[in-house]
Design a binder for these strands. Structure first.
Lengths: 111, 111
DNA sequence: AAAGACCGTGCGTTATAATGAACAAAACAG
DNA sequence: CTGTTTTGTTCATTATAACGCACGGTCTTT
């Protein structure tokens, strides 16, 4: 469905609905309805606006596009994706993250 | 423009506006307005209907078919991506990850 | 040349896309 | 904990996408 894809790419970019709506110049109430599939027939101009902000091609929102690298990203659980975005934006270094991983692996092993 | 492309593919199929409109299940008056660019903001469902009759992909009507690249996959930093994959495989829960993020946000803030 | 069949366009009406508040709940700051 | 800001939602209203029908024009057919 169209809504889930919009939400997915919005989360991947680490944007809130308010932010996306404002930057794209659309009503956030309508954006909300779209993402929840309450309204499912947006116009091409509407899609153009949000697609350009999300930095994706419009047909990516229209249907699933098969592409090796893309599939990889899509395979990542939705919630994980937003977590990644949050991590990248909040200035956590890769080193810190690696340390965290090491520690956790060790921790799990203890059980 | 969108209208000229619809007209182009309709003529290529040797269809009249009346025929295309009827087969696609849309109003020919509206189709006429679209082709003449009097109305330029059709919905995706409308485009879907006529695209399937014209036997073309919907994005062919939207714009000239150029190389569609998928930068969004690259947008997620490659190295981060593998780190996340590692995290997911090593059984780290989302909750633990969230706690880690919280802690790090706080830590950064201390500077 | 009149009658019928089909073309595309003009126009009034209807359905709904899209908006702009105002709202409760969550996240945040002090 | 208390007030402030930001989140996504609901709802009433506006704008317009999309429709149905009637019309004039062109081409047959008789």
């Amino acid at each position: 469905m169209i809504g889930s894809r919009v939400r997915q790419y919005r989360n991947a970019k680490g944007l809130t609905m308010s932010e996306l709506a404002e930057r794209a110049g659309v009503a956030k109430s309508y954006l909300s309805a779209i993402e929840r599939d309450i309204q499912t027939n947006p116009s091409i101009q509407f899609l153009d606006k949000i697609a350009s902000v999300l930095d994706v091609d419009i047909n990516v929102l229209l249907k699933d596009v098969t592409s090796s690298t893309y599939e990889e990203a899509a395979a990542l659980d939705e919630e994980w994706q937003s977590l990644i975005a949050e991590a990248m934006n909040s200035g956590v270094s890769k080193e810190e993250f690696r340390d965290f991983l090491e520690y956790n692996k060790w921790k799990i092993k203890q059980k």
